[in-house]
């Protein structure tokens, strides 16, 4: 904190350990992270393209995209938000928040995720069901085969 304080942080912004601004950052590093992020975005977009081999198993695509998203998020947090170079306080804030986020989602599952396990007869009557989608697809097929039928 002795010799390079004068260059920045006049308001006494604490970086007491002299977190060495020359040690991190830099255009090159950011461009590498940027390139990796672009590549990963293309990868998650790839699941949508016709070349994706698991089109009949959407779960594979979902898992793949979540993995890609987590990697992208990690890159942004670590390098763009400089968390990689921060002191240990970063764990105090991020780990509890991340845990609370996971708990929150788990708590939603019984009431909302499983809401369709037990619905009243009346509600079931007005709810969309997979059969409705099939019916619409059939109607579309009928229209396509013979457009002048009706």
């Amino acid at each position: 904190m002795s010799d390079h304080t004068s260059s920045h942080d006049p308001a006494g912004h604490g970086d007491p350990a002299g977190h060495g601004d020359h040690a991190h950052g830099g255009l090159g590093k950011y461009l590498v992270v940027f390139a990796v992020l672009c590549f990963l975005t293309t990868m998650s977009f790839f699941t949508y393209s016709a070349a994706w081999p698991w089109r009949d198993q959407p779960q594979v695509g979902w898992a793949f995209m979540m993995a890609v998203s987590c990697m992208k998020a990690l890159l942004v947090v670590l390098f763009f938000m400089h968390v990689w170079w921060e002191a240990n306080w970063k764990y105090v804030l991020t780990i509890p928040a991340a845990m609370m986020a996971v708990f929150l989602v788990i708590m939603l599952v019984p009431d909302i995720g499983m809401r369709n396990r037990m619905v009243s007869q009346e509600r079931a009557l007005h709810m969309a069901r997979p059969a409705d989608l099939l019916l619409l697809e059939k109607a579309a097929d009928a229209g396509r085969v013979d457009p002048a039928a009706h």
Binding site: A97, A101, L104, V105
Partner: peptide, 28 residues
């Protein structure tokens, strides 16, 4: 800012989590 962001993490985690749970709990 970081305290604010950690509340924001929970805010969007709730929204995204609800979306995922609603989406996979829906019949269609």
């Amino acid at each position: 800012m970081w305290l604010f962001l950690s509340t924001e993490i929970m805010f969007f985690a709730a929204l995204l989590g609800s979306y995922v749970v609603l989406r996979f709990g829906a019949a269609v």
